[in-house]
Design a protein around this nucleic acid. Structure first.
Length: 183
DNA sequence: AGGATGATATCC
DNA sequence: GATATCATCCTC
């Protein structure tokens, strides 16, 4: 299985979010491949998006999200859960896609539905902050046996503070998947 | 419905 | 230096 090229990420964030659905997230983790199929994501559209961390500007925390596409933006939320994003669009744009749920494919020890659980199941933590996804250890690959899917659009989860941005349909998931984090 | 638990931003 | 807040999850 081969990592998607950086050009895949260097495009419109909503388009990347759509195309990530059904792809495989792969982590080569002490001798085994942990693999999950991406079934749920959210798009974060940069500094003008009040729900995006980059709306706070360039800080040590948001450095990776303002960085070049195809890298991981990992952070700790509520003191106990890690969340993983993939950075999109050219360096400096501050856009990313949050990975919210996976369908287990191989070696996932616990449920990967929900951004915190996803990171726990894949073995992802702050050590992967800024990790290049065009690498052999942690990357996203094409689904070797893709099936047609329908995409559902909903408002994002947990961003009620973001004013009019909270209502925008920027959460995407595969219709009918039993592995999405909530209905 | 509420608590855990720590990094971060934003005040003084 | 103090405090409020948080792209969540588990337990009651």
């Amino acid at each position: 299985m081969q990592a998607l090229p950086r050009d895949f990420y260097n495009r419109n964030t909503i388009q990347v979010a759509h195309e990530l659905l059904g792809k495989f997230l792969v982590h080569h983790f002490n001798g085994e491949d942990r693999i999950g199929k991406i079934v749920e994501v959210e798009a974060y559209l940069g500094p003008q998006d009040l729900a995006a961390h980059t709306s706070k500007g360039l800080t040590p925390r948001t450095r990776a999200m303002f960085g070049p596409p195809g890298h991981a933006y990992v952070y700790l939320i509520y003191g106990m859960h890690h969340c993983m994003n993939v950075v999109t669009e050219p360096e400096g744009t501050g856009t990313a896609v949050l990975l919210r749920a996976l369908e287990p494919v191989a070696n996932l020890p616990v449920s990967a539905s929900g951004p915190g659980r996803l990171c726990k199941a894949m073995g992802i933590d702050k050590g992967h902050y800024g990790h290049d996804l065009c690498s052999p250890t942690l990357f996203i690959a094409d689904n070797p046996d893709p099936a047609p899917i329908r995409i559902v659009e909903r408002p994002r989860i947990g961003v009620d503070y973001a004013g009019e941005w909270a209502a925008k349909p920027l959460r995407f998931y595969i219709e009918g998947s039993p592995y999405i984090s909530r209905k």
